[in-house]
Design a protein around this nucleic acid. Structure first.
Lengths: 213, 213
DNA sequence: GGCAAACTTGCAGTCCGTGCACGTTCTTCG
DNA sequence: CGAAGAACGTGCACGGACTGCAAGTTTGCC
């Protein structure tokens, strides 16, 4: 259950053209993330990003609609991984448990921690945070539908699938922010996987009980 | 100057200058929302918005950093209302119950439903959705801290406050989207207040149990 | 080899967003 | 009451973002 890629039917032909496109896209995303995290998004131009990726400035817009979109491209991939990891879990497993495993799969992806640490610099840039949220939101619907299929719910009258999907993604954000020390350094120094477990345990048993330290 | 927060209601003594500023800000926000919902955000220019609000185009940027920010100004105000309504609840009330009341206060605000219905047209515009999320996120931290104060938790080691804050806002989004019929029309035809209650009840008792139709 | 589709690139144009300067309006305090 | 001074509105100018169009180039497939 490694890092399956975006393409749903990538079986027959990777093809040279598709490979080059993916490489260009990755190069642009990497360049955008690196430059923006180094010198701040407002001091990075499309021309510089395209230059690092070794393409023409005009080509950038063949892949991304804006600088922000390129920076958060990695989060979009993680969101896809989340949904795929969920549907790959056994169908008789409790939903929350499947989601816990799916979240662990995401945060355990190679390069995930590096990306999050890079993004750390970019907190406080509302525009980037906004697009980051949007990258996950784009797959929230897909996750909700997968959950509805699993539980046999009717999304038209049951709030459960959409709510669990949104809550899971929100929980992931909370775990990552805690891991980054957004509210001060946790003396327990937990790892991301443990934090994900904590979050899902709280959702599982309900938010009524206040966990006292 | 984007750091300045929305304050559409002035408490003590506004003064003429403050009143005019608030009026201009409201006019710009209203114009932006109306024009964008009518003809689509991509076909609306800053100049047109400023024209409707009867100010110079340059003045627009004294109030909002971008078109999107103006459109979602109302959501920013709602986010402020949410936090204020929470802290106004009695301190011995269970957190989830206080949040339920706070959410009801938000969705019951005059003009809230009108705004949501206008926003309905703007789903599918990722940029706007992103800024909408950002508008709420901007106050998520404040809500988490208010919750931490209420429960006496230490945010450095306890995930509860941040998690409940994020989940509440996510739940509000789910309730609104369901109310708008994003997943098909609910034959129960519940009102927004009922949906908010449903969401918070699910959070309260835990997401383990699957509510069968 | 040759054709068609897809991709890259340059060009031109519109709009966004900001720093700066100047005139006007409001507030404050003597 | 009236002037100093801050705050606001506005025009100007400039760099950057983004798009449509029309090439030129590469790739996939006979």
């Amino acid at each position: 259950m490694g890092a399956e890629q975006t393409d749903l039917r990538a079986l027959p032909e990777p093809g040279r053209r598709e490979r080059k496109k993916a490489a260009t896209r990755a190069a642009l995303a990497a360049a955008a993330l690196r430059l923006c995290s180094e010198r701040g998004p407002e001091h990075v131009t499309i021309e510089q990003i395209a230059d690092v990726a070794d393409v023409a400035p005009r080509t950038f817009f063949n892949y991304f609609a804006s600088k922000e979109e390129a920076v958060v491209a990695g989060d979009g991939a993680s969101a896809i991984t989340l949904v795929e990891a969920f549907v790959a879990r056994p169908g008789d497993e409790p939903v929350i448990e499947s989601l816990r495993h799916a979240l662990r799969a995401v945060v355990s992806e190679p390069g995930y921690r590096d990306r999050v640490l890079r993004m750390r610099t970019l907190r406080g840039h509302p525009t980037l945070v906004a697009h980051q949220l949007a990258a996950f939101m784009a797959r929230e619907r897909a996750l909700a539908e997968a959950i509805a299929v699993r539980t046999g719910s009717d999304p038209a009258r049951d709030l459960y699938p959409a709510l669990v999907a949104s809550a899971t993604i929100a929980g992931m954000r909370v775990a990552v922010q805690h891991w980054l020390g957004d509210h001060g350094t946790d003396p327990r120094d937990p790892d991301l996987e443990e934090l994900v477990d904590e979050v899902m345990a709280l959702f599982d048993t309900g938010l009524r009980a206040v966990a006292r330290t």
